[in-house]
Design a protein around this nucleic acid. Structure first.
Lengths: 275, 275
DNA sequence: CAAACTAATATGTCGGAGTAATATAAAGGA
DNA sequence: TCCTTTATATTACTCCGACATATTAGTTTG
């Protein structure tokens, strides 16, 4: 982890290893003789690239509030040396964060964390970073609220525009949900497939992308929910009601059924988070 | 632009020079007889960085369909040389595109354009790129449809949760809209301010971010609309109705008034696009 | 006191060298 | 014949060191 030091006004985030708490020691200084540096090596999974790992690390630190808006990261050279990576890799990571609106880099000024309203909170990666730690309850509430707005409307559109192929997709997903439960990966995948099928039936790309992002985030909370206790309620009947209404072309019924489904999911997650 | 050559199966995009449409060719190198590389120098505005300009160029080419999903860009060295920039700048640009889900880079395979459903269509930059050329009518329709779903719901929430400060913001924006018209930049800014004030009153960050993206895109279409002809209708009264309902705490009325507002805007844009 | 100029500093850009990963082709075994 | 394993070539990935550029802060000058 990286120590945070804030100056008056615009703070500055100094990148240094936790072990060296003295504030002025240059990271590369030969203070320790053996290669004893507890170098905060940025490890990456097999598939992930180095700059991706750095972006994940920094992004998670930013969305979790460890680096606060207005803070400026210490210079490229210092930070990259502290992370024990090349300047190129660090820069590419910063470009990613900049692309997602988390930071802004300018000459002389340095790289500073942007205010929260500039963040692309609906970006899948940003959501993943937000949920990699302890997600902000208020933000989770916002997400569910948005979902409760969008998904019923999507169900209404789907009831208008679905064709036979769409209905088959939903039936297949429903069958998979019945076979596996929500406690398994396959079951959760089937749940996502069902919702994706509904979205696809709306013929609205913007809706598809948006709900894909939200759905991914909600999946995290669902998994979180499962961690705490077994799900007491069988979710399949509620899904079937949605399917029936969409298949029948019942616009109002589809919207209402989906609204019920989302509300119940919210209720489950809310109670699980309190416990 | 860069010429596109597709092989059988997975196509490949070769980066090669052609006559740039923007007249920024250096006078000295204008007529290069021998080496006829009319180097497609990527020029950037004052504030924009080089890799940002490259990202804009490539991103616009991708979302406009010039590079199609499945195509693989020619290698880093070839492409960066064709663009007459360093590999670092090119790579950082690709990282940006990768962060937005437009491309994916893997060793041996190269960087290839991802299928459309992987794109972050709600990313502000991606939207800007999409609207920098001729926007897809179908996608614009999707965007308006999403807006017609989200904004009325936002108005309902705002009617529940607004406080005096929110109402003051809306009144100020309304006043600015009255003073300037929608034909001026200031007027359009006031329009955005009003909608942003409504969004802020919902106390929902996800809603704010989402509608900020959509609003920016819609602003482009509004400008496009203005280009074709003068707006025949005065938009202020409709906005006032929304404000009155929100101020009165009339949830249903606010949603209905906003729905009317969005529908009218859609109607205007639709007729303007046909003409 | 204000405007213009100078200097310091951090990001931006560059080109090259070497490493790691992976798809394709080749070789081997069932 | 088909599948598995190995080898190889191509490509992105990472690192490095240098220079260019932009922006701020301080200094000088009117």
């Amino acid at each position: 982890m990286l120590k945070v030091v804030r100056k008056d006004g615009g703070g500055e985030v100094h990148a240094m290893s936790d072990s060296m708490t003295n504030g002025d020691a240059p990271p590369g200084a030969a203070t320790d003789i053996g290669s004893e540096e507890a170098a905060p090596k940025v490890k990456r999974g097999t598939g992930r690239r180095l700059h991706g790992a750095i972006a994940h690390k920094l992004g998670a630190a930013i969305v979790s509030g460890e680096y606060r808006p207005g803070d400026t990261l210490s210079g490229e050279v210092a930070f990259s040396e502290a992370l024990d990576v090349s300047r190129s890799a660090y820069r590419e990571a910063v470009q990613v964060l900049s692309a997602k609106g988390l930071v802004e880099s300018r000459p002389k000024t340095g790289t500073r964390v942007l205010p929260r309203h500039r963040w692309n909170l609906l970006d899948p990666d940003v959501l993943a970073w937000a949920f990699s730690g302890e997600p902000d309850i208020q933000f989770v509430r916002s997400l569910f609220e948005l979902r409760s707005i969008v998904e019923p409307a999507a169900a209404r559109l789907a009831a208008e525009r679905r064709d036979k192929a769409d209905l088959k997709e939903m039936r297949d997903a429903l069958g998979a949900m019945r076979r596996h439960t929500l406690a398994t990966d396959a079951g959760r995948a089937a749940d996502r497939d069902f919702h994706n099928a509904v979205l696809a039936a709306t013929r609205n790309d913007a809706l598809v992308v948006l709900t894909a992002s939200i759905g991914a985030a909600v999946a995290w909370t669902t998994q979180f929910k499962q961690r705490s206790r077994a799900l007491p309620r069988n979710p399949v009947p509620d899904h079937v009601k949605v399917y029936d209404a969409i298949a029948a072309g019942d616009v109002e019924g589809a919207g209402e059924a989906m609204r019920l489904l989302v509300d119940l999911a919210l209720e489950d997650t809310r109670s699980a988070m309190k416990g």
